[in-house]
Design a protein around this nucleic acid. Structure first.
Lengths: 239, 239
DNA sequence: AGGTAGTGTTCGTCAAGTCGAACGACTAGC
DNA sequence: GCTAGTCGTTCGACTTGACGAACACTACCT
């Protein structure tokens, strides 16, 4: 593969100005949200990571990819030799990539993602959050120009995650204790009706209608209904 | 860059069998879900797309990237010459890539993504769904071994998306009509209490408590409360 | 002790990605 | 008509990604 990397400016300063305007795509802008701010506070948790892309220089990108490969390989418990074999690439190639020496082709990265069992984007984009609780009536509320419509931002997105949405209907009784899921799993719960004890097994939180909580799903956690016909929406996010 | 592409088998059949088992990571497995199936039906909507990764052959991948670049360039209204200039790469390189002739380096792709104003992983991994409604009491219900706990899967994940979670509180009155958001945006709404007319402006659906709907947010859509104190959870998914 | 198997790193070679230049086609302005 | 500019494609040259082989190291077995 070729010469100096594009955009590294080693060439002739052909680094277009638009590259700086690249994927600063960190969520919808105000204008693009389903409601516009009429008299609300600022939106969005402060811990929203930048999306992959635009903000990094190519050399930082290569280093990040190297770290991602090492991380995922470690997580999968594979040797460098075995991963290379599975991906159908040379050991030496993988060794170079893991030490951030080089500029892999997209096919090489693709093959590695496949062999590691992770989406390609996960190798080129990073991660990760904690436990957050937002009570009914609290949180950054935004109102549309129609006074009859109010939206509370509970959590903002993270790139490269998958998420499943569930509606729960639980009766009081034996608590539901879940074992740790896949590393990196996060659960978001919003209580609809009833009352429940929800969250990490070590420190569950009592939720009332409209309350929200997010916590790591990769540690033991609990859901216990404290009232009949307790209903909740759960969004499981995992990468 | 090098020879034949990894995994293309032009080499020595070094295409590991694991590459077929690659990112078939289409959601948590039963064992990994926050509840286990004790007496429920099978879970997961049938329209769950495969995650990025393993399912494509290298040649398909290159063709897809070519199409993505052409699509985004067209959307951005740039000429091949101008895009190449902005990305800091040679016109000839871009021409080759757009005609699916070649296997770009990750840095070349990165520079193109930046110049096009999209995350470069998006050039490699597309996507896209429709409108889905699941009524309260319907949908794939899974029960834990505890009879007091039932979960309904409303939507399953898709790779490479971001999502924001909101709680809405709306009163009857003027309908909230939203303009199209960023291309590819999808909105998932679950009604908590009250009643509302929700969905694409051309064909909104009336929702009751517990009902769920998903629809493209990149077209005009509406939310109108039909009862006082209507509460809903909305998950905005965008890539 | 020796041998085998596995690990990750380094090396030299080769082909393909990327480069700039040339080319033909097209459009707009004089 | 002509000129200038832009467009996208093709070409030959150059550099580096990816390859296989060799190497040093470790662990295990006889």
């Amino acid at each position: 593969m070729a010469k100096s990397s594009p955009g590294e400016g080693g060439r002739s300063g052909n680094r277009g100005p638009a590259s700086g305007s690249g994927a600063r795509n960190r969520g919808l802008s105000h204008a693009e949200r389903p409601f516009s701010v009429a008299r609300g506070e600022s939106a969005g948790p402060s811990s929203v990571p930048a999306p992959g892309g635009g903000e990094r220089s190519p050399s930082e990108l290569i280093a990040l990819i190297a770290a991602s490969i090492r991380r995922e390989r470690d997580r999968a418990g594979l040797s460098l030799t075995e991963l290379a074999r599975r991906a159908g690439i040379a050991k030496s190639t993988l060794s170079q990539l893991e030490s951030a020496a080089g500029n892999p082709s997209v096919e090489t990265l693709w093959a590695l993602g496949a062999a590691l069992g992770v989406p390609f984007s996960q190798l080129v984009d990073p991660p990760r959050p904690n436990v957050r609780v937002i009570r009914a009536g609290e949180g950054p509320v935004t109102y549309s120009e129609q006074a009859n419509y109010a939206a509370t931002l509970l959590a903002s997105g993270q790139a490269n995650s998958r998420r499943d949405i569930y509606r729960l209907e639980v009766q009081p009784g034996e608590p539901r204790i879940s074992q740790p899921h896949m590393a990196g799993t996060v659960e978001h719960v919003v209580l609809g009706t009833g009352r429940a004890l929800v969250g990490p097994l070590t420190e569950p939180v009592e939720l009332n209608p409209g309350d929200y909580i997010a916590y790591p799903g990769d540690a033991p956690h609990i859901f216990e209904a404290l009232q009949p016909d307790t209903i909740a929406i759960i969004v499981m996010e995992h990468i």
